[in-house]
Design a binder for these strands. Structure first.
Length: 439
DNA sequence: CTGGGGAAGGGGCCC
DNA sequence: TGGGCCCCTTCCCCA
């Protein structure tokens, strides 16, 4: 006979004991803040503590102390609360750091929940953006609007079960890792609006991952300082090599996250590596790539999630980055290069013309234009550019829209650039997939 | 089959 | 923090 409440009661009791510092035989020092805990609980929850405590098993009579500088006390609070309650308080602001800490501590459950959270957030960002753009259709032309806070708004849209519980004030979700990992719950990213990666993309992704492996300078960095005097050096060294092994193993496992490095750079880091390497602070949870800036990490994450929030209005191809979209649009649909496509000579408005083939525009010099004949339509470039760029002060990425297109596209002010984002039906979009450009 | 060119896509970094 | 530019690599198409 099994009493179902026993496990939760037991955990609750242990949590109470931890809070009241009863039977706590382990102290964890994180940036000066001391956390009390039970050795056996930590041992059971974290691969890192398992290794640490088993090494120190001979000294069971002595209280164990561990010191971390690789993450903040707030992050460790979240981790420790999870260990003792099974509930993980994730938000858009802390998820990266929690994931890195969990990776450091080798807590696979937490890592997968964070991964899911990140993927869902990115997906919801996209969905929310589309929804927002579609809703803004009517007033977009008259009002200057800003993008919504995607995390907060997006999560509340979701209603799948088991559903993360949200603190209404800050959009923080409390997730029970066990229920997530054991249920068949498919978060938003798996019901995705985004088409799955094509084979081509997957191949490229794997190529990239290999490249990232070579680039990873910080997977070897140890951020652990044991306060046990007799084991300090060996522990650090052990963890360093362990991190290295794990980073490699993680990369080999393709999707296994191996994030160790996030937050404050430790003294070890700055002493052991050149300045340019120690400044790299943001560790990709999916690969070993490290970047200096959070926004660069956010951008990088799209190559793992496959998120392509920027559709080309002209051909429907989607891009993960706005600058790639703009570049594509200028090259393919605006014929910005002053080069004759046929003879490669310099072709300006005087010496040539922009011609159209499908949605694609390119330049031909007058000679080649005469040779090509009538099957390609010369475009009045000035008129075209006027439509693209109605005023000198505005960016050329303001796209021309025909009247019929206006019925289903949204015009959104995004900073100084006028983006035209096509409102897409998700299911339809999945089928569309990314097609190669018309050549 | 191969080499060249164009396009895509990723990273670094400046504004 | 996002946009945008530059640089580089990779992939694909075509001659």
């Amino acid at each position: 006979m099994e009493i179902s409440s026993h496990l939760s009661d037991l955990l609750q009791q242990l949590n109470e004991q931890r809070r009241q510092d009863v039977f706590c035989d382990c102290s964890i020092l994180v940036e000066g803040k001391v956390f009390k805990a039970h050795r056996n609980v930590l041992f059971a929850s974290s691969g890192y503590f398992k290794m640490l405590l088993s090494q120190n098993s001979k000294e069971m009579s002595q209280p164990t102390t561990a010191t971390f500088q690789a993450f903040s006390p707030d992050t460790f609070t979240i981790i420790l609360d999870f260990v003792y309650s099974g509930k993980l308080s994730l938000s858009g602001q802390n998820v990266i750091e929690v994931m890195s800490a969990a990776s450091f501590l080798q807590m696979t459950d937490v890592i997968s929940v964070c991964k899911t959270f990140i993927k869902s957030s990115l997906d919801i960002s996209e969905k929310e953006k589309d929804r927002y753009f579609s809703l803004s259709d009517k007033d977009a032309s008259s009002n200057r609007i800003e993008r919504p806070s995607l995390y907060a708004g997006g999560w509340q849209e979701e209603s799948s079960s088991p559903q993360p519980h949200f603190s209404p004030d800050q959009g923080t979700s409390v997730i029970s890792a066990k229920s997530w990992s054991k249920s068949n719950y498919h978060p938003a990213c798996q019901r995705n609006t985004q088409p799955p990666l094509t084979k081509h993309e997957q191949r490229k992704d794997s190529i990239k991952k290999t490249k990232h492996l070579r680039l990873s300078p910080l997977s070897e960095v140890a951020h652990f300082k044991s306060s046990k005097p007799e084991s300090q050096t060996s522990d650090s060294a052990n963890h360093a090599s362990q991190s290295e092994e794990q980073a490699q193993a993680g990369a080999e496992m393709d999707s296994a996250p191996v994030g160790y490095q996030y937050g404050q750079a430790s003294e070890v880091t700055s002493r052991s590596f050149p300045d340019d390497l120690s400044r790299l602070r943001f560790k990709c949870p999916y690969c070993t790539h490290v970047v200096k800036r959070k926004s660069d990490l956010k951008r990088h994450l799209r190559c793992h999630t496959g998120e392509r929030p920027y559709p080309c209005q002209a051909c429907g191809k989607r891009f993960s980055r706005l600058d790639h979209l703009n570049s594509h649009f200028r090259t393919i649909h605006q014929a910005c290069k002053l080069i004759c496509r046929k003879c490669k000579c310099h072709a300006t408005d005087l010496t040539g013309q922009v011609v159209q083939e499908g949605t694609r525009h390119y330049r031909l010099c007058n000679e080649c234009l005469a040779e090509v004949g009538i099957d390609r339509l010369p475009i009045d470039l000035e008129a075209e550019q006027h439509l693209m760029s109605p005023s000198d002060g505005e960016k050329e990425s303001r796209w021309h829209l025909s009247e019929e297109n206006r019925s289903y596209v949204e015009i959104v002010e995004d900073g100084s650039v006028d983006l035209v984002i096509q409102q897409v039906d998700d299911s339809e979009e999945e089928e569309k997939e990314i097609k190669p450009n018309i050549r």
